[in-house]
């Protein structure tokens, strides 16, 4: 009797159903690529426009700035949430996730009310020369707000995955809690931390509504695309969008390559 390997119909049908999502993204990419490659001189002209390159750079830098602040403030918060079991944890986790469920314009209004020159945070900071309205700090504040859950949730998951026993042993060996965190827990969570950074950065640079509420100027790339769409038409805005796709894609591929080789300790056999 010959045995035949039966195809896994469940897995195949799942793959077929799921592939529609991948196809959707690919179609969108192919569509915009085909449009742009049909007029390369115009694309090059847009690419050489300093307002476009400056805007991309501004967006990436502001996103990076937001991520740095998130790492500094969000890492301790994520660790506390991972290592404590207070009844308040659920409430705090829900508060952290609020930016995920809010319409972006609502998030924008909340940011504006808080950081405007008469706002709860904006007013005192204005006195020391820190202005958010139509300024770089406003962009960073809006990006920080919307990207926050992506970083904190991912970092928390990473810390939770580090067995408590490792930390306990480190402490019995003479490490304070901070040293146990910095020498054992943090290095073992580095992949989650980096993934959290990538997700948060991606979320930050893609923000539009929350940013324009507080800082229409200087224009981040989303604002510039919208502005060119309303003033210059679809052709100009599509070219900028295509350049942004190329830039973002390159950065993301690079970051994913880096994280692929960082923090892998379980497969060194």
């Amino acid at each position: 009797m010959t045995s035949r390997i039966k195809p896994d119909l469940c897995l195949i049908s799942f793959a077929l159903v799921g592939s529609t999502l991948v196809i959707l993204i690919l179609l969108a990419l192919l569509n915009i690529t085909a449009t742009q490659l049909s007029d390369i001189p115009f694309l090059l002209q847009v690419a050489q426009d300093s307002r476009v390159t400056d805007s991309i750079l501004l967006t990436f830098t502001a996103g990076l700035n937001a991520v740095i602040i998130l790492v500094l403030l969000g890492t301790p918060l994520a660790y506390v949430l991972a290592r404590t079991h207070s009844r308040f944890n659920n409430i705090i986790e829900s508060i952290i996730d609020i930016p995920l469920v809010l319409p972006h314009t609502v998030a924008g209004i909340m940011i504006y009310l808080l950081f405007m020159q008469r706002g709860l945070i904006g007013a005192p900071l204005k006195d020391v020369g820190f202005i958010f309205e139509d300024a770089y700090p406003g962009i960073v504040a809006a990006m920080l707000f919307v990207a926050l859950p992506f970083y904190v949730d991912t970092a928390r998951e990473g810390f939770e995955k580090v067995p408590l026993h490792l930390e306990n042993v480190a402490r019995t060996l003479g490490a304070t809690r901070f040293r146990a965190f910095s020498l054992v827990v943090f290095p073992l969570s580095i992949r989650h931390i980096l993934n959290g950074c990538i997700l948060a950065w991606g979320r930050a640079i893609s923000e539009f509504a929350a940013v324009i509420m507080i800082a229409y100027y200087p224009m981040v790339i989303s604002t510039l695309i919208y502005y060119r769409f309303t003033t210059g038409g679809i052709k100009e805005s599509t070219a900028i969008a295509f350049l942004m796709i190329l830039a973002s894609f390159s950065v993301f591929v690079l970051l994913r390559l880096v994280t692929r080789y960082v923090g892998r300790y379980d497969d060194r056999v």
Binding site: H165, L166, N168, V169, A170, T172, G174, L183, L188
Partner: peptide, 29 residues
């Protein structure tokens, strides 16, 4: 606190630090 007690602890799963070599694990304390 545990770091001041100088009491050695070995868990059932041994809890070796996976990101450190054997030498660094032993030298951690």
């Amino acid at each position: 606190p545990p770091e001041m007690r100088k009491i050695g602890l070995v868990y059932q799963d041994y809890s070796l630090f996976p990101h450190m070599t054997v030498e660094k694990n032993i030298g951690f304390g």
